[in-house]
């Protein structure tokens, strides 16, 4: 079986500033990959390359075994961006309406059917936000909002969940609950790629770790990462070690 994501020798630069250099990695079905690195290390850029949001300057990307420009099964990917966390501060839209978007790729230009609504309702149950579904999404707390975005991904019946620092600004308790939810989804067979600045969370949860700072410093299982000195090397390479206090 081909990997879910297959990145080969990709490089990308913003103008003259290289962001990602010669990175190759694969994400296999059912994996929980933690993508870590210091601030400005190219994590988000790499994720965007993986999802086809950015076209790399060189190298190739395959999603679900297809070259990225031929890939069309967008519903297989659930994406929670940093942007989606902040967006919708003024737009009137309910939690349910956001989650229904997960069915849009399936529906095309037809109306949502009974079956779509049933799947949406199930997704809402899974992340346990039924009592919030008629509220405006911007009336939710950060943690509740992340659950809504996960539900959107579930509604699209995604096989791959890509999350970019989903718990920024979320309190510790909701954060634990959120990662508990990710664990459960992962055991149900959903592949997860997670960018997270809190290394503790990643080493606790992820089955594999990719540590990058422009280049790939480590890619392998979590145990070997903890034992290696990839972390010090990657964070040292930027000339600063970031400390986060939460």
């Amino acid at each position: 079986m081909s990997p879910i994501i297959d990145v080969t020798d990709v490089s990308f630069a913003y103008g003259d500033t290289p962001a990602v250099s010669d990175v190759s990695l694969t994400v296999e079905s059912g994996e929980f990959l933690g993508l870590i690195g210091p601030n400005g290390s190219g994590k988000t850029t790499l994720l965007h390359i993986m999802l086809g949001l950015i076209e790399p300057d060189s190298g190739s990307v395959e999603l679900f075994g297809e070259p990225i420009d031929e890939f069309s099964a967008g519903h297989r990917i659930g994406y929670v961006s940093q942007q989606s966390t902040s967006k919708g501060s003024t737009m009137p839209i309910t939690v349910r309406e956001v989650i229904e978007m997960g069915r849009f790729a399936h529906a095309g230009s037809r109306r949502l059917a009974e079956e779509d609504h049933a799947i949406v309702a199930e997704a809402i149950e899974t992340v346990d936000i039924a009592e919030l579904q008629d509220r405006r999404i911007n009336a939710l707390s950060g943690g509740q909002r992340q659950r809504a975005y996960i539900a959107r991904a579930l509604a699209s019946e995604a096989d791959l969940l890509a999350l970019d620092e989903p718990t920024v600004g979320v309190d510790a308790e909701s954060r634990d609950a959120f990662y508990g939810l990710l664990d459960r989804l992962n055991s149900d067979g959903i592949t997860i790629v997670l960018i997270e600045h809190d290394i503790g969370v990643v080493t606790d949860r992820a089955s594999r770790i990719a540590c990058i700072n422009r280049e790939l410093y480590h890619h392998g299982d979590t145990e070997s990462f903890v034992e290696s000195d990839a972390l010090a090397e990657a964070y040292g390479a930027s000339g600063r070690v970031v400390h986060h206090h939460h």
Binding site: L51, G52, L53, F71, S72, A73, G74, H75, I77, Y79, V80, S81, Q83, S84, K87, G88, M91, I93, E97, V98, M101, F104, A105, A107, S109, L112, R152, S156, A162
Partner: peptide
């Protein structure tokens, strides 16, 4: 639906192809 998706979350809409 498509216009709504793009209006609300352009990046996710792009990922959804």
């Amino acid at each position: 639906k498509q216009l709504l998706f793009i209006t609300f979350d352009e990046q996710a809409a792009r990922v959804a192809q």
